[in-house]
Computed example of a mutant assay.
Amino acid sequence: MAAGRELSSLGAVHSDDQIDQKLTPQPPATRSNDGASSEQPNDRPAAAEPARRGVRALPSRARRGGRALLGAIPVRVALATAVTCCLVAAGAAAVASRDTAEPPAPQVAEAATDRALAAQDEPASRSLDRSPSPTPASPSASPTAKASAKPPASPKPKKTKTTPARPKPVAGLTQAQMDNAKVIVDVGVKLKIPRQGLVIAVATAMQESTLLNYASGVLPESQNHPHQAIGWDHDSVGLFQQRPSSGWGSVRDLMRPAYAAQAFYAALLKVPGWQQMSVTMAAQAVQVSAFPYAYAQHEERARTIVAALTT
């Protein structure tokens, strides 16, 4: 009890004092007449509590300062941590900057030179790392490819060989006879033979073979070539019944109407004055036939045939 009064007299603070409350000295308590009392005054119930607990109460200013100190500690720790992070980041950036600006080692520079030289030998479309080129987009997937792609060219129509129209037969000839007469006239026109010579050639063929391509029964070889009839007059073959044994040509050549007509015109041009001769005399000069006047009977029809084939 005495200890409690002593603490009160020294200005101990109440546990329920406000933080900003000022301490005021308390007058010493007077003892009552009836001796010491085991109870404290009603206005100081908490003053003796710190004493009973064995803890000395701190001034309000000290308590307030402690709380401020404890609140400032996390802030300082956070600031220190942020500063440390900034310093580490700045150091890393400086190292990276130094490594980037630092010139390459000799081995690295040599390797880069080798890659550059190798790139010059490679196609321009290939990269230095030799990575595979990307697959080009199909024309349907790329708008640029659509614009640059040319439309497929339309197929050109195939040229079909047109067979010339066969001449209409005249002068009582069959179609086969008229076709052979046309070959004789066409060869003469190509050789620029005068019209009289065309008539002589057609009249001669009409007398010798009736304008049919003959093979010879005496020459089996002649029958291996296209023919329209077979004769037995020695080795005479073809439209003009020319004999291979007389030097007119080979069997194979004489069986071709165009060659046979050309051989006849060549012999006719060698006859002196043939243009002033009659058809019979000119034909006989070339053919040397046993019937020299037989050609005259075909002259008029021959003229009709030539006129039909040259107009």
Results as ranks from 00 to 15, higher is better:
153 A>F: 00
43 D>M: 01
16 D>W: 14
24 T>C: 05
167 P>T: 02
73 I>K: 01
291 F>Q: 14
108 V>G: 12
24 T>N: 08
47 A>D: 13
69 L>R: 12
118 A>K: 06
255 M>W: 01
96 A>Y: 15
190 K>A: 11
209 S>I: 01
83 V>Y: 11
98 R>Q: 15
211 L>S: 02
133 S>Y: 01
278 S>R: 10
45 P>M: 11
29 A>I: 13
257 P>D: 04
101 A>R: 15
293 Y>I: 04
82 A>P: 06
170 V>E: 07
62 A>N: 13
266 A>T: 14
301 R>Y: 00
109 A>G: 13
216 S>I: 10
105 A>D: 15
295 Y>H: 02
302 A>L: 04
41 P>L: 07
192 K>S: 10
12 A>F: 11
74 P>G: 04
280 T>P: 00
282 A>E: 06
152 P>S: 09
110 E>S: 09
272 P>M: 09
104 P>D: 09
12 A>T: 11
130 R>M: 07
146 K>M: 11
55 V>P: 03
303 R>S: 05
185 V>A: 11
190 K>Q: 10
97 S>Y: 15
284 Q>Y: 05
203 A>K: 03
93 A>S: 12
185 V>L: 08
279 V>D: 04
182 K>V: 03
162 T>V: 15
272 P>I: 10
129 D>I: 07
290 A>M: 05
196 Q>T: 10
222 S>N: 06
263 A>R: 12
4 G>W: 14
266 A>P: 00
69 L>F: 10
228 Q>G: 02
25 P>F: 03
206 M>R: 06
241 Q>P: 03
239 L>G: 05
248 W>S: 07
61 R>A: 12
156 K>Y: 07
288 V>I: 15
67 R>H: 02
210 T>Y: 02
27 P>D: 13
217 G>K: 09
20 D>F: 12
149 A>C: 09
213 N>L: 05
18 Q>E: 12
212 L>M: 09
268 L>N: 03
62 A>Q: 14
304 T>N: 06
189 V>C: 02
258 A>R: 15
274 W>L: 08
265 Y>L: 00
237 V>I: 15
36 A>M: 07
78 A>E: 11
69 L>Y: 09
132 P>R: 10
131 S>K: 12
81 T>W: 15
174 T>F: 02
295 Y>E: 05
74 P>D: 00
134 P>L: 07
120 Q>K: 06
74 P>M: 01
202 V>G: 05
275 Q>K: 13
186 D>P: 07
136 P>G: 08
255 M>Q: 06
133 S>C: 02
139 P>D: 05
79 L>R: 13
208 E>Y: 01
274 W>K: 03
133 S>N: 11
273 G>W: 02
84 T>L: 15
118 A>Y: 00
306 V>F: 01
222 S>M: 10
78 A>Y: 05
174 T>S: 14
119 A>L: 13
169 P>V: 01
20 D>I: 06
224 N>V: 02
296 A>H: 08
174 T>L: 04
244 P>N: 00
17 D>P: 12
238 G>E: 00
245 S>M: 01
272 P>N: 10
15 S>Y: 12
184 I>T: 05
269 L>Y: 01
219 L>E: 08
253 D>L: 02
82 A>C: 09
